[in-house]
Each structure stands twice: as structure tokens, then as C-alpha cells.
Design a protein around this nucleic acid. Structure first.
Lengths: 174, 174
DNA sequence: CTCCCTGCAAACTGTTTGCAAGTAC
DNA sequence: GTACTTGCAAACAGTTTGCAGGGAG
């Protein structure tokens, strides 16, 4: 991992290095967790884990497969499915439900967090502090339900997609 | 529709009659809406609409098919799919996403409403007043996203399923 | 050296499409 | 009578399973 030797005084570059290290770290943690649970380590598994662990965007199995193929041409789609299954079993990834479909996965964040998803590119931000307790107890009282969980997700456009869409509208006059 | 002639002074019975009328009414409204949009009326369509319009529970296509078959043995699964497509197009039903799968549909309620779903039987209650505006503008400010929509769903056990599950636990000592 | 993991092929499930016959308008 | 709708069968897409060979431990 040569990136860990890069030393820079340029602020933007050092921030970049920190991000790289963080993502590499997440991959190794996942690999360690898989080994701890008795799974053997292979090149295929490693590549898929790296792709999924470092993606800031929601990935469908087929998207993960395509990205993994760019790094290692011999990977099969079945291996991607089996790896996603293992990662989900260990709680390292979570399935993402969207109006456009429910095949996506994203690295799971610790604690009870909600998702903000870019409808255009799938970029995900996590947030917490939903302040729903009052609402939930009101609804429980009114309906008699025993409420055991909730889903909260926000949808929108990330900064970059706002710019890109505005630009393409200006240039195509649509 | 003979139920519309029932007159009762028993409070619980008259409440029951009102419910029946409301559900029948919803079916006719849907049929009227479909005709207004140029769709022809057939026995098959009518049965599927009735099943979906009157169900207080989330129905998957295959569940709707089974219920429709009980009323009319000649219905095909393809017709159920095509009818659901029409109803969704007109905004009369909405797709329901659950941890257990995303094939379900429920009659759509007017206005911006959220769902409370029984994880055991699929019974749905609607509620509104999510008080999320503050959270959404906070998150928008922190992330730079242009937030355009949100999903909020609560999961739990309805009154009846709580009783049933408690009963079965007591009797099976699990 | 053992047994798990991979990749291929095939099976499977849920959904959509093509088409001939039936039916609403 | 015209043209939309239906139900069957087949096609399709996404996912899972069976199995023989290769590789991790």
C-alpha cells in the first residue's frame, strides 16, 4: 500500500491521502472480519470487497460485478452475489431500497443511521437524529400497533448532479 | 349491492355496514376512473379491482391473484399484473417496500401520507404529520443536496397479531 | 492434503411480451 | 364490426443451486 507513504503539505492533496487510507482501511477491516468468521481469502473475494467497501454510491450486484471485472477479468457474477451475501450476513453492507428498485447495496454505517440518496448517481450520505420518537409514540397510541422499527430515507440530487443537470438543460434547451 | 339496504340501530352493526359501503364505493370509483381513462370494463378487471381496492393489507401480485381466483376461477396472473399497472398509472395504488420484499401494493391514500405496516400480516395504517421539515433542511444544508422527496415507514405488529403471537408463545413455550 | 471457493451452466422465480381468441363498446 | 382485453405460452431478467476443478489453509 504505497499511498500510506505519501506525505504532502498541500491541504487538498493530504485530504485526498486521508480518504484513500480510510477506504483501504475499511477493506482490510472487512477482510479481517470475513477471515475471523472462517471464510477463506481469495483474489476474487478481495476484489469484490474492495469495490463494495470503497464505493460511495449504491451498487447493484451487476454494477459491483462490472467494477470488479475492471480490476480482475476472471471474476464471475455468482461470486459477487455470494460475497454480498457474506457481507450482509456480517452486517458490513445493507440493502438500499429506492423507487427505481431494491437491488442496491451500500457499506453499512455504525449506529442507527438514515440515508440521503442522490437519485441521479446513487451517491449516499448518512445522517442521524431523526427526532421521530414523539411521532412514533403518537402513532402507536392511535393505532394500537407495537412499533418495532422504522425506515427514513431522503432522496434528492447531490451537489455535482445538480450542476451537471443544470448544465445539460442549458445546453440542450429542454 | 344488497348491503346498501341494510338498516340497523345496533351501533356495531351499522358501523360495519358503513365500512362495507365505503369499500364498495372505492371499487366503483376506481372502475369509473379506469373507464374515464379509456379502459374497457370486463369481469376480470372488475374482480381484480375489487380485491385490491378492498384489501386493508399489502398484497403481492400473487396474493391478489389468489384472492381474485376465489371470486372468478378463470382469471390469469397476467391480468393481475396488467391491472396493477393500470391502477398504479392512475395513482390509485402504490408499491410498498418492506424488508421482506418490494412486490406489495396497497390502495393509495390521498395527500402525503406514510405507512405503518404490520410485519406479520401486512395490515396497513396511514398517518401524516411527519415533522421532518427541520431535519430535512438541516441535512440539505450540511450535505449540499437538493432534497426532493422522502420515505418514512413504520413497522410493527398490529393489535391482533400481538395477541396471536403472545398466545402462540404461551402455548408453545418457545 | 483436505475442504472451501470459484466459475460455468442450468435451474428457478418473478415479470413482461407475442399472439390468437373472446368481448366491450 | 373494430379494436381493446384476456389467458396461454414463451421469453426475459435477476438470483440461486449443482458440480467439477483449482487454490487456501
Amino acid at each position: 500500500m504505497k499511498t500510506s507513504f505519501i506525505i504532502s503539505k498541500d491541504e487538498s492533496l493530504s485530504r485526498f491521502v486521508i480518504i484513500i487510507l480510510m477506504l483501504e482501511n475499511q477493506s482490510s477491516e472487512w477482510i479481517a472480519a470475513l477471515q475471523k468468521h472462517g471464510y477463506r481469502m481469495s483474489a476474487a473475494l478481495q476484489v469484490v470487497v474492495e469495490v463494495v467497501a470503497t464505493s460511495p454510491r449504491v451498487l447493484s450486484p451487476i454494477q459491483a460485478f462490472d467494477l470488479a471485472r475492471k480490476k480482475n477479468a476472471k471474476i464471475g457474477l455468482v461470486t459477487v452475489y455470494r460475497t454480498l451475501e457474506k457481507l450482509e450476513e456480517l452486517g458490513l453492507i445493507q440493502r438500499v431500497h429506492q423507487p427505481s428498485g431494491c437491488q442496491g447495496f451500500i457499506a453499512a454505517n455504525d449506529g442507527h443511521q438514515h440515508l440521503l440518496i442522490c437519485e441521479n448517481c446513487g451517491l449516499v450520505e448518512f445522517f442521524s437524529g431523526d427526532r421521530l420518537d414523539g411521532l412514533m409514540s403518537d402513532v402507536a397510541g392511535e393505532t394500537g400497533y407495537n412499533i418495532t422499527g422504522h425506515w427514513l430515507q431522503l432522496f434528492g440530487l447531490c451537489r455535482q448532479c445538480q450542476v451537471e443537470i443544470q448544465y445539460s438543460n442549458e445546453n440542450q434547451g429542454d
